[in-house]
Write a protein that binds this DNA or RNA. Structure first.
Length: 222
DNA sequence: GCGACAG
DNA sequence: ATCTTGTCGC
């Protein structure tokens, strides 16, 4: 698929923050009318110990059968350090390169990280959504906001909060396991994002999309 | 100074 | 993220 590559790239954390503050106004938290994804993409990045070599993978699954219809990998390097809140600048280049190698354009991007559940309301899922123009959402393994543990049954959820502001949901994707943290990325609402997350977790805690992307980028480094 | 801190 | 063995449970 065609991707609009970032025109400018930050050299410092300060510049990265400035970019987030400028792009965050482009985030749309409403689901397009008639939105019914036929394909869903999962994205993930693996890191090589001791180096700055990374591998990004994107897998595209049929939304109903969860069968894989496409995939792509991109091996590259990361120069940006890991800073909580600026995580996207570490993975964005390689993820965009992988997306460009896709032969189809997915209807929804499911990211391994936060969407608007972010200090400046612009996590990786928002960034990828805005740059591609595609609906996107974040399913993170850890939260950045406060939350009360949801009931133990699959499907139970509690709001992810920053004071009174709702940033996302702590969603129980499987009964009796630690919840995942779902938040809006771009062009989707929180209810739909959670519904999609649940559909993608028929058996495991993490979405089938991120599980397969994780395995793919890991193999690419080995 | 001390603890937190997506991946 | 990554380094890592065994172990408890279905």
């Amino acid at each position: 698929m065609q991707v609009r590559v970032p025109h400018e790239w930050p050299d410092t954390p300060e510049e990265a923050v400035a970019i987030q503050l400028r792009l965050r106004s482009l985030v749309e938290q409403a689901t397009p009318a008639g939105f019914e994804p036929r394909t869903v993409a999962g994205l993930d990045v693996a890191y090589e110990e001791g180096t700055n070599r990374v591998a990004a993978a994107v897998v595209v699954l049929d939304a109903d059968s969860l069968e894989q219809v496409d995939s792509a990998v991109a091996v590259g390097h990361t120069d940006f350090p890991y800073v909580s809140g600026l995580f996207a600048f570490r993975e964005l280049p390689s993820l965009l390169a992988a997306l460009e190698r896709l032969t189809v354009t997915p209807d929804l991007l499911v990211c391994d990280g936060q969407g608007v559940a972010h200090p400046r309301r612009f996590g990786l899922a928002c960034h990828l959504g805005v740059l591609t123009g595609l609906p996107s959402m974040g399913v993170a393994k850890n939260s950045m906001g406060e939350f009360e543990p949801p009931a133990a049954e699959r499907g139970a959820w509690t709001p992810l909060l920053d004071g009174e502001e709702v940033l996302g949901r702590a969603l129980r994707s499987q009964s009796g396991v630690k919840p995942v943290f779902v938040s809006v990325g771009h062009r989707i609402d929180l209810d739909r994002a959670c519904a999609e997350a649940l559909r993608l977790c028929p058996r495991y805690r993490l979405p089938e999309t991120t599980r397969r992307a994780d395995r793919l980028c890991r193999d690419a480094l080995a």
